[in-house]
Design a protein around this nucleic acid. Sequence first.
DNA 1: CTTAGCACTCAGGGGTGCTGAGTGCTAAAA
DNA 2: TTTTAGCACTCAGCACCCCTGAGTGCTAAG
Lengths: 355, 355
Amino acid sequence: MELTERKKKVLRSVVDLYIRTAEPVGSKAITELPDMNYSSATIRNEMAELTAMGYLEQPHTSAGRVPSAVGYRLYVDELMAEYRLSIDETKSINSAIEEKMNKVDKMVEKVARLVSQATDLPAISVASRCGGVTIRRFDLILAGVGSIIVVLMLSSDEVVNKLIRLPVQMDESDLKILSALLNATMTDLDISAFDGNLLERVMRSAGAGASLVPVIMEFAVDTLQKQCGTNMAVAGQMRILGLPEYRDVDKAQKLITSLDEESLAGLPAVLNNVNGTQVLVGPENVSRELKDTSVVMTKFDIGDGMQGMIGVVGPTRMDYAKVTARLSYFAESLSKMFAKPEQPQIAEGTSGKEE
Amino acid sequence: MELTERKKKVLRSVVDLYIRTAEPVGSKAITELPDMNYSSATIRNEMAELTAMGYLEQPHTSAGRVPSAVGYRLYVDELMAEYRLSIDETKSINSAIEEKMNKVDKMVEKVARLVSQATDLPAISVASRCGGVTIRRFDLILAGVGSIIVVLMLSSDEVVNKLIRLPVQMDESDLKILSALLNATMTDLDISAFDGNLLERVMRSAGAGASLVPVIMEFAVDTLQKQCGTNMAVAGQMRILGLPEYRDVDKAQKLITSLDEESLAGLPAVLNNVNGTQVLVGPENVSRELKDTSVVMTKFDIGDGMQGMIGVVGPTRMDYAKVTARLSYFAESLSKMFAKPEQPQIAEGTSGKEE
DNA sequence: CTTAGCACTCAGGGGTGCTGAGTGCTAAAA
DNA sequence: TTTTAGCACTCAGCACCCCTGAGTGCTAAG
């Protein structure tokens, strides 16, 4: 059987209506659409064939039709009308993004929240960077009674610090020597270079501060490791409670728990395969738990070799056009924001006390 | 009418059973309890009187009884058996707490999550400190091409830093002079002392670095302000979905949103009135939205003049004994942890880039 | 003061029947 | 050949009703 233009038109109408109403769509509803100059009988015939071809499904004999996963696939790939963001929408997205975002982890959280808000669906945001970051510079500051602050400046322009209690007595000049040594031997190295070998070499030349070297090195490795890791945040899980398909609490609960960060641990791995905006319909999905939902995700760039991803999870019947439009716009704006030639640049950070 | 011992016993049984089953409790169910050597008729009489006295309520004529808010009040104040934490429970709480918690905001989040997990209810965690923190020390570090890192060490032992691009050329000795000046004039001052007056005075003596002073001072004020603020986190909102009273999605959603947003902004203010563990039953509650739930909260100490609070929100029918036990234990452990004479102390922090 | 007994109430579950939206098929119209 | 009108059929959802059983209050006897 062939997929004629008219069949496509009907299919599209069914999906559109179903997205709007979340109810099976009957032939009559279709005929009432503008631009649909056929009788309900004709539509019925077409729908019967679309059902036979697997694009539509029928919950029970005397109900209307519901798009199948295959139907959705076709819809997002070919039929969906482009959704144009209104000025209000772009404005609200922009103002949301423009709030300052200091640290990567905070940023990820905030983005997730923003995306969720913009789409009214649960959202996921991931940022990951692997390798490439090095320590550009060490500074040691004497901090009163027997402790020092180690300040690391990273190639990514982030600055981290740590307070270390001194195991031995040291004075300002000792510190100067030690920091010169560190800057000479341990800067601009990839994380893999920090091994026992390096430690030994540095300690041999360290003199008075030798006992500090392992602690500092551990801190350095820790920091680089953290840089390398993946940050992920989920927000707005409870938004699904507003959707008719999740009136059933059990269903909602199942989905919500499967959206928890731990169960999405596998997601960052998918990141590499994504390009542009991608839609995963129902069973095509990443994880089994999500198999009767759809996921829309987009990648964006964060400079410094970092990559980000934002995505939303929703019912298969979500408004793909709108969601993809918002998501793409969001991703674009974020990319732009990170690419922006840095303003009078100022970085800021806090540190607690305690290990 | 008098509240005899037997009436109390009956009331207690009703509450206990209702906590377990979430269903109205009938006279027969009570007689079946061990230690209840009366017939159902007697119990019925007692229950009728308890109802008349306002401790119990009857959803409809032919249903069992449900505790009223007053009844719950009496229960938590007098009748409730103490719940003893099992070794497993204390162990899991301890191990949860012992994970390191670096920064205050992260800490607050983590605590909320832990409490929620321990009680299987939505949890709130607040940490607030007002005043008292000062800057103990300034350090300026030259950071390559025309920028410096300002490092503030606070009286609370926290260390914060910020990268500032230099508006003018400065060398190491300029910085030394400036930092000496800052340390001489701006340390150990309460936040209120940072006014235009001080700024002017410092700038007059600053020489080469004068143009930096406003930026640094702004950063200092910002930092102190942040120290002074309140951190709050909510976690586990969706746990209510597991409770029979929230099978109704609309109800659940209402509660969740009233927990979610900073609709709880007023809560920190309550903190001062709390002492020890406190139970708010139904209509006694803080905010109108929570009026048919109960809140249990406990205060704890974080040293440095900081105060913390943890609390959970749940149905009026929650297991007060268990929840208060867990919460108190949690609070105690936290207090202990923060009071602990600092180990080989090491503090750590990160900083982003960007303002 | 306690308890057995009895009449009464009423929420909730299970059947029954109706309604209306939707279908497929057929035969007539275009 | 394609479209449409008409008709018989299906079935989820709702309203209705009845019945059951858990629970009650009251009374009178122990």
